[in-house]
Amino acid sequence: MQDLPSVLIAGVLLGGIYGLVALGLNLIFGVVRTVNFAQGELVMLSMYGTYWLYTRLGLNPYLAVPPIAVALFLLGLLLQRFVLQPLQDEPMMQIFATFGLLMLLQNLVLGVTGGVSMGIDWPAARQVLLIAGVRVSLVRVVALAALTAITIGLHLFLRDTMPGKAVRAVIQDKLAARAMGINVERAYLLTFGVGAALAGVAGALLTPIFTLSPAIGGNFILAAFAVVVLGGLGSVWGAYLGGLIVGIVETFAGYYIDPALRQAIWFLIFIAVLIVRPSGLLGQVGAEEVGFREQH
């Protein structure tokens, strides 16, 4: 059991990565009520953007967060306005459209990079902190800290600001929100933009950790979907909690049972949660019907 602290911390930090990727996905899921299959590709795009800024302009990956987030926010607005909004009354078509976006973005990057794996050897990424005798990677700690800060910020935004309240109203009932004078389309635009920007933040923060390939988004997205469903659809803290649970369970299963079974274990938990509480641990009851319930 001497490795227990190391395994626990590794699990928490992995949860931070999952939570970071799942946050934007959950927001879009909860508000726009569409499954954005291209969310992983938005993370991938921002990773390549960060890589490009680092290798061409020498920009520190953490300083790349603001420009990348703004760029992804604008891209999110465009995608919502010109791809998803025209399909607003056809939820299944929206899902197919996001899948099409996934293929488009993946192949676009493939065409540009020629499939070469890329990575940056950023000196800060080599920094290791010693916490109670446990070696901890600085960049992973930063990712978890960023997730915590963003989750708190998003929570306050949704609770205390008018646009945030409008978004919450749309989450609860789109029709009633529209009757109250809320511009639902604008709330969708804002949400998709913020969701994409969160993918941008995640991508920039994760670039120093991973080797980039056009298909890397797919490596994140399966776990991110599980995190979203586990934590609670449309719940900001659900993504945080779900990320930590998946990260910790996966690492414990990998270390104490078998690395080959790490995903199988948390999928079992995932299925159990779906059976016992389909809306997820912190999700609003009924939210699991997103995308399938008739929306007006």
Partner: peptide, 19 residues
């Protein structure tokens, strides 16, 4: 030790080898 080539995290694999 076996791991997936698409793994997001391999800390458990490394810790097992290190142990």
């Amino acid at each position: 030790g076996a791991h997936s080539a698409a793994s997001i995290d391999l800390t458990d694999s490394v810790l097992r080898a290190k142990r």
